[in-house]
Simulated assay, not measured.
Amino acid sequence: MHRHLPAPTVPDLGLETERSVDLCVWTNEEGSRFQPAMMGSGVACGILPLEQALAASDADGVRVADELVRHGYDREPAPDVGLADCYLELHIEQGPILENTGKTIGVVTGGQGIRWYEIALHGEETHAGPVPMALRKDPVPLLARMIDLVHAIGGRDPQARCTIGQVRTHPGSINVVPGRIEMTVDLRHPDEAELDAMHDALMRGCRDLASTHPSIGLDVQLRWHSPVVRFDPSLAKLVRSSAERMGIAAHEMVSGAGHDAFHLARRVPSVMIFVPCRDGVSHNPREYASPEHVAAGANVLLSVVLERAMSRG
Protein backbone atom coordinates (compact mmCIF):
# COMPACT_ATOMS: atom_id res chain seq x y z
CA MET A 1 0.00 0.00 0.00
CA HIS A 2 1.26 3.51 -0.79
CA ARG A 3 1.86 5.79 2.16
CA HIS A 4 0.59 9.26 1.28
CA LEU A 5 2.00 12.08 3.36
CA PRO A 6 -0.30 14.99 4.16
CA ALA A 7 -0.13 17.74 1.56
CA PRO A 8 0.53 21.32 2.71
CA THR A 9 -2.54 23.39 3.40
CA VAL A 10 -3.35 26.55 1.46
CA PRO A 11 -1.91 28.94 4.13
CA ASP A 12 1.25 26.81 4.35
CA LEU A 13 1.75 27.22 0.62
CA GLY A 14 1.24 31.00 0.81
CA LEU A 15 -1.38 30.80 -1.94
CA GLU A 16 -3.95 33.46 -2.70
CA THR A 17 -6.96 31.86 -4.34
CA GLU A 18 -9.30 33.46 -6.85
CA ARG A 19 -12.28 32.02 -4.95
CA SER A 20 -12.90 31.61 -1.25
CA VAL A 21 -12.84 28.12 0.25
CA ASP A 22 -15.62 27.55 2.79
CA LEU A 23 -16.25 24.62 5.10
CA CYS A 24 -19.88 23.50 5.53
CA VAL A 25 -21.20 21.55 8.51
CA TRP A 26 -24.77 20.55 7.72
CA THR A 27 -27.45 19.70 10.26
CA ASN A 28 -28.98 16.20 10.35
CA GLU A 29 -27.56 14.52 7.26
CA GLU A 30 -28.48 11.02 8.43
CA GLY A 31 -32.12 11.52 9.41
CA SER A 32 -31.80 9.00 12.26
CA ARG A 33 -33.51 11.10 14.93
CA PHE A 34 -35.39 13.63 12.80
CA GLN A 35 -36.85 13.11 9.30
CA PRO A 36 -36.25 13.88 6.53
CA ALA A 37 -32.53 13.26 6.11
CA MET A 38 -30.10 15.84 4.68
CA MET A 39 -32.15 18.47 6.48
CA GLY A 40 -29.71 21.39 6.72
CA SER A 41 -28.55 21.13 3.12
CA GLY A 42 -32.15 20.70 1.98
CA VAL A 43 -33.13 23.99 3.61
CA ALA A 44 -30.03 25.78 2.30
CA CYS A 45 -30.77 24.63 -1.24
CA GLY A 46 -34.45 25.59 -1.08
CA ILE A 47 -35.55 21.96 -1.44
CA LEU A 48 -36.98 21.66 2.09
CA PRO A 49 -39.01 24.55 3.59
CA LEU A 50 -37.40 25.92 6.75
CA GLU A 51 -40.72 25.79 8.61
CA GLN A 52 -41.12 22.08 7.83
CA ALA A 53 -37.60 21.32 9.04
CA LEU A 54 -38.06 23.26 12.29
CA ALA A 55 -41.38 21.54 12.99
CA ALA A 56 -40.00 18.00 12.57
CA SER A 57 -40.00 16.05 15.84
CA ASP A 58 -38.35 12.90 17.15
CA ALA A 59 -39.99 9.85 18.74
CA ASP A 60 -40.29 11.74 22.04
CA GLY A 61 -41.98 14.75 20.46
CA VAL A 62 -38.91 17.02 20.70
CA ARG A 63 -38.80 19.48 17.79
CA VAL A 64 -35.78 20.42 15.69
CA ALA A 65 -36.46 24.07 16.50
CA ASP A 66 -36.21 23.42 20.23
CA GLU A 67 -32.95 21.50 19.89
CA LEU A 68 -31.39 24.24 17.78
CA VAL A 69 -32.23 26.76 20.49
CA ARG A 70 -30.94 24.47 23.24
CA HIS A 71 -27.56 24.12 21.52
CA GLY A 72 -27.35 27.79 20.51
CA TYR A 73 -27.56 27.07 16.78
CA ASP A 74 -30.66 29.16 16.12
CA ARG A 75 -28.76 32.41 15.49
CA GLU A 76 -26.62 31.33 12.54
CA PRO A 77 -27.12 33.11 9.20
CA ALA A 78 -28.60 31.10 6.35
CA PRO A 79 -25.95 30.04 3.77
CA ASP A 80 -26.29 31.40 0.24
CA VAL A 81 -25.69 28.30 -1.85
CA GLY A 82 -26.35 30.25 -5.01
CA LEU A 83 -23.00 32.04 -4.69
CA ALA A 84 -20.99 28.82 -4.59
CA ASP A 85 -18.73 27.87 -7.51
CA CYS A 86 -18.98 24.18 -6.65
CA TYR A 87 -19.39 21.71 -3.80
CA LEU A 88 -17.00 18.88 -2.88
CA GLU A 89 -17.59 16.19 -0.28
CA LEU A 90 -15.15 13.56 1.00
CA HIS A 91 -16.62 10.48 2.71
CA ILE A 92 -15.99 6.85 3.48
CA GLU A 93 -17.70 4.61 0.94
CA GLN A 94 -19.95 2.90 3.53
CA GLY A 95 -19.79 -0.23 1.39
CA PRO A 96 -17.31 -2.91 0.25
CA ILE A 97 -16.65 -2.04 -3.41
CA LEU A 98 -13.39 -0.09 -3.07
CA GLU A 99 -11.93 -2.60 -0.64
CA ASN A 100 -12.93 -5.53 -2.85
CA THR A 101 -11.44 -3.93 -5.97
CA GLY A 102 -8.25 -2.84 -4.21
CA LYS A 103 -8.83 0.83 -5.06
CA THR A 104 -8.23 3.79 -2.72
CA ILE A 105 -10.27 6.59 -4.29
CA GLY A 106 -13.88 6.38 -5.36
CA VAL A 107 -14.77 8.84 -8.11
CA VAL A 108 -18.46 9.24 -7.34
CA THR A 109 -20.46 9.98 -10.48
CA GLY A 110 -23.89 10.12 -8.85
CA GLY A 111 -26.19 8.75 -6.19
CA GLN A 112 -29.06 6.30 -5.91
CA GLY A 113 -32.63 7.47 -5.66
CA ILE A 114 -34.16 6.90 -2.22
CA ARG A 115 -37.75 6.58 -1.01
CA TRP A 116 -38.71 6.29 2.67
CA TYR A 117 -42.10 4.95 3.77
CA GLU A 118 -43.97 4.59 7.05
CA ILE A 119 -46.46 1.71 7.13
CA ALA A 120 -49.03 1.06 9.88
CA LEU A 121 -51.04 -2.11 10.42
CA HIS A 122 -54.17 -1.71 12.57
CA GLY A 123 -55.66 -4.70 14.41
CA GLU A 124 -57.31 -5.10 17.79
CA GLU A 125 -55.40 -5.16 21.05
CA THR A 126 -56.47 -8.03 23.29
CA HIS A 127 -55.19 -10.51 25.89
CA ALA A 128 -52.93 -13.33 24.62
CA GLY A 129 -54.67 -16.07 26.62
CA PRO A 130 -58.48 -15.87 26.52
CA VAL A 131 -59.03 -14.98 22.83
CA PRO A 132 -58.90 -17.92 20.34
CA MET A 133 -56.61 -17.51 17.34
CA ALA A 134 -59.49 -17.59 14.85
CA LEU A 135 -61.26 -14.70 16.60
CA ARG A 136 -58.32 -12.34 16.82
CA LYS A 137 -57.63 -9.26 14.71
CA ASP A 138 -53.88 -9.79 14.95
CA PRO A 139 -51.75 -7.69 12.55
CA VAL A 140 -48.63 -9.86 12.98
CA PRO A 141 -49.48 -12.35 10.17
CA LEU A 142 -49.93 -9.39 7.84
CA LEU A 143 -46.55 -8.04 9.01
CA ALA A 144 -44.98 -11.31 7.85
CA ARG A 145 -46.54 -10.89 4.40
CA MET A 146 -45.34 -7.27 4.29
CA ILE A 147 -41.77 -8.35 5.00
CA ASP A 148 -41.96 -10.89 2.18
CA LEU A 149 -43.37 -8.25 -0.17
CA VAL A 150 -40.65 -5.68 0.56
CA HIS A 151 -37.82 -8.17 0.17
CA ALA A 152 -39.28 -9.47 -3.09
CA ILE A 153 -39.23 -5.89 -4.41
CA GLY A 154 -35.64 -5.47 -3.25
CA GLY A 155 -34.65 -8.66 -5.06
CA ARG A 156 -36.05 -7.63 -8.43
CA ASP A 157 -32.55 -6.85 -9.81
CA PRO A 158 -28.97 -6.66 -8.45
CA GLN A 159 -29.02 -2.87 -8.24
CA ALA A 160 -32.22 -2.64 -6.16
CA ARG A 161 -32.04 -2.19 -2.40
CA CYS A 162 -34.69 -2.58 0.29
CA THR A 163 -34.48 -2.20 4.07
CA ILE A 164 -37.02 -2.55 6.87
CA GLY A 165 -35.23 -0.52 9.51
CA GLN A 166 -37.85 -0.25 12.25
CA VAL A 167 -40.69 -2.45 13.47
CA ARG A 168 -42.67 -1.32 16.51
CA THR A 169 -45.58 -3.19 18.10
CA HIS A 170 -48.10 -1.46 20.37
CA PRO A 171 -48.51 -1.81 23.27
CA GLY A 172 -45.39 -3.96 23.09
CA SER A 173 -46.26 -6.42 25.87
CA ILE A 174 -45.37 -10.13 25.83
CA ASN A 175 -48.92 -11.20 26.72
CA VAL A 176 -50.93 -8.78 24.54
CA VAL A 177 -51.93 -9.19 20.91
CA PRO A 178 -50.70 -5.97 19.25
CA GLY A 179 -53.35 -3.48 18.26
CA ARG A 180 -50.99 -1.61 15.96
CA ILE A 181 -47.69 -2.32 14.21
CA GLU A 182 -45.55 0.42 12.66
CA MET A 183 -42.71 -0.27 10.26
CA THR A 184 -40.38 1.73 8.03
CA VAL A 185 -39.32 0.81 4.50
CA ASP A 186 -36.32 2.18 2.58
CA LEU A 187 -36.22 1.56 -1.20
CA ARG A 188 -33.26 2.56 -3.38
CA HIS A 189 -32.15 2.25 -7.00
CA PRO A 190 -29.67 4.12 -9.25
CA ASP A 191 -32.30 4.38 -12.01
CA GLU A 192 -35.26 6.64 -11.31
CA ALA A 193 -37.60 4.70 -13.59
CA GLU A 194 -36.75 1.49 -11.75
CA LEU A 195 -37.28 3.21 -8.41
CA ASP A 196 -40.70 4.32 -9.66
CA ALA A 197 -41.45 0.71 -10.57
CA MET A 198 -40.42 -0.41 -7.09
CA HIS A 199 -42.76 2.21 -5.61
CA ASP A 200 -45.61 1.00 -7.80
CA ALA A 201 -44.94 -2.61 -6.80
CA LEU A 202 -45.05 -1.66 -3.12
CA MET A 203 -48.33 0.24 -3.51
CA ARG A 204 -49.88 -2.54 -5.55
CA GLY A 205 -48.70 -5.20 -3.12
CA CYS A 206 -50.11 -3.28 -0.15
CA ARG A 207 -53.50 -2.97 -1.85
CA ASP A 208 -53.53 -6.71 -2.57
CA LEU A 209 -52.57 -7.59 1.02
CA ALA A 210 -55.19 -5.24 2.43
CA SER A 211 -57.87 -6.95 0.32
CA THR A 212 -56.86 -10.40 1.56
CA HIS A 213 -56.73 -9.29 5.23
CA PRO A 214 -59.97 -7.25 5.53
CA SER A 215 -59.98 -7.29 9.34
CA ILE A 216 -56.63 -5.44 9.47
CA GLY A 217 -56.17 -1.85 8.44
CA LEU A 218 -53.11 -0.99 6.33
CA ASP A 219 -51.87 2.58 5.84
CA VAL A 220 -48.83 3.56 3.72
CA GLN A 221 -47.24 7.01 3.67
CA LEU A 222 -44.32 8.11 1.52
CA ARG A 223 -42.26 10.23 3.91
CA TRP A 224 -39.31 11.24 1.75
CA HIS A 225 -38.06 10.98 -1.81
CA SER A 226 -34.52 11.84 -2.88
CA PRO A 227 -34.33 11.45 -6.68
CA VAL A 228 -31.39 9.90 -8.52
CA VAL A 229 -28.43 12.34 -8.66
CA ARG A 230 -25.83 12.85 -11.39
CA PHE A 231 -22.67 14.66 -10.27
CA ASP A 232 -20.78 17.16 -12.40
CA PRO A 233 -18.65 15.30 -15.03
CA SER A 234 -15.92 17.96 -15.06
CA LEU A 235 -15.45 17.71 -11.29
CA ALA A 236 -15.43 13.91 -11.49
CA LYS A 237 -12.73 14.20 -14.15
CA LEU A 238 -10.70 16.43 -11.81
CA VAL A 239 -10.99 13.87 -9.01
CA ARG A 240 -9.85 11.10 -11.33
CA SER A 241 -6.91 13.08 -12.77
CA SER A 242 -5.80 14.23 -9.30
CA ALA A 243 -5.73 10.65 -8.06
CA GLU A 244 -3.83 9.50 -11.16
CA ARG A 245 -1.27 12.28 -10.77
CA MET A 246 -0.59 11.12 -7.20
CA GLY A 247 -0.37 7.49 -8.25
CA ILE A 248 -3.50 6.54 -6.31
CA ALA A 249 -5.76 3.84 -7.74
CA ALA A 250 -9.28 5.16 -8.47
CA HIS A 251 -12.62 3.59 -9.35
CA GLU A 252 -15.79 5.19 -10.74
CA MET A 253 -18.89 4.37 -8.74
CA VAL A 254 -22.37 5.45 -7.67
CA SER A 255 -23.13 6.28 -4.04
CA GLY A 256 -25.52 3.86 -2.40
CA ALA A 257 -26.00 6.09 0.66
CA GLY A 258 -27.61 9.53 0.75
CA HIS A 259 -25.40 12.58 1.29
CA ASP A 260 -25.76 16.37 1.50
CA ALA A 261 -24.05 16.49 -1.89
CA PHE A 262 -27.27 15.12 -3.38
CA HIS A 263 -29.08 18.36 -2.54
CA LEU A 264 -26.14 20.58 -3.50
CA ALA A 265 -25.90 18.89 -6.90
CA ARG A 266 -29.32 20.32 -7.77
CA ARG A 267 -28.02 23.87 -7.25
CA VAL A 268 -24.28 23.95 -8.04
CA PRO A 269 -21.71 21.66 -9.71
CA SER A 270 -20.94 18.96 -7.13
CA VAL A 271 -18.97 15.75 -6.72
CA MET A 272 -18.02 13.27 -4.00
CA ILE A 273 -14.78 11.46 -3.22
CA PHE A 274 -14.91 8.09 -1.45
CA VAL A 275 -12.23 6.23 0.49
CA PRO A 276 -12.55 2.60 1.66
CA CYS A 277 -13.90 1.53 5.03
CA ARG A 278 -12.90 -1.81 6.51
CA ASP A 279 -15.25 -4.67 5.52
CA GLY A 280 -17.63 -2.07 4.08
CA VAL A 281 -19.07 -1.49 7.55
CA SER A 282 -20.59 1.87 8.55
CA HIS A 283 -23.20 3.11 11.04
CA ASN A 284 -21.64 0.61 13.41
CA PRO A 285 -19.03 0.78 16.22
CA ARG A 286 -16.73 -1.31 13.97
CA GLU A 287 -16.62 1.43 11.33
CA TYR A 288 -12.96 2.13 10.45
CA ALA A 289 -10.95 3.87 7.76
CA SER A 290 -7.16 3.61 7.78
CA PRO A 291 -5.03 6.76 8.24
CA GLU A 292 -3.41 6.06 4.86
CA HIS A 293 -6.75 6.02 3.08
CA VAL A 294 -7.98 9.10 4.91
CA ALA A 295 -4.79 10.97 3.98
CA ALA A 296 -5.12 9.90 0.34
CA GLY A 297 -8.70 11.16 0.22
CA ALA A 298 -7.76 14.45 1.88
CA ASN A 299 -4.91 15.00 -0.59
CA VAL A 300 -7.14 14.36 -3.59
CA LEU A 301 -9.76 16.69 -2.10
CA LEU A 302 -7.13 19.41 -1.56
CA SER A 303 -5.91 19.01 -5.13
CA VAL A 304 -9.41 19.47 -6.57
CA VAL A 305 -10.15 22.39 -4.23
CA LEU A 306 -6.99 24.19 -5.35
CA GLU A 307 -7.73 23.48 -9.02
CA ARG A 308 -11.10 25.19 -8.73
CA ALA A 309 -10.15 27.90 -6.25
CA MET A 310 -7.10 29.02 -8.26
CA SER A 311 -9.00 29.12 -11.56
CA ARG A 312 -10.23 32.44 -12.93
CA GLY A 313 -12.81 30.76 -15.19
Rank of each mutant, 00 (worst) to 15 (best):
D186V: 08
V108P: 09
L187Q: 03
R156S: 15
V275A: 06
E67N: 11
S241H: 09
Y87A: 15
D260C: 03
E287F: 02
R19A: 15
A289K: 08
V176W: 01
I153N: 05
R3K: 13
D74C: 00
R286S: 12
R161H: 13
P79A: 02
G111N: 04
G14S: 10
E287K: 03
A257R: 04
H91M: 03
G106S: 10
E93I: 09
L88G: 10
D232K: 02
A78N: 00
R266E: 10
Q52Y: 08
V228D: 05
G256T: 08
M203P: 03
L143S: 08
R240E: 15
V81W: 02
T109R: 01
H170W: 13
Y288C: 05
H170K: 13
V131K: 12
D74P: 09
P178T: 03
T212R: 15
R223W: 01
V281L: 09
L195M: 11
R312A: 15
N28A: 12
V69L: 08
G40F: 09
D138E: 02
L15F: 14
P139R: 06
L264I: 08
Y117N: 00
A120K: 08
K237Y: 07
D219R: 14
T9D: 14
P96F: 04
A197S: 10
S226N: 14
V69M: 07
L195E: 03
S41T: 08
D186F: 13
R63Q: 13
V229L: 06
S57D: 03
A128P: 08
Q159H: 12
P291E: 04
D12M: 11
D208K: 11
H293V: 03
P139E: 01
P139W: 04
G14F: 12
M39R: 04
P171N: 10
I97W: 01
G217H: 08
I164F: 11
Q221E: 14
R33Q: 12
N28P: 02
E99N: 10
M1S: 15
E252I: 02
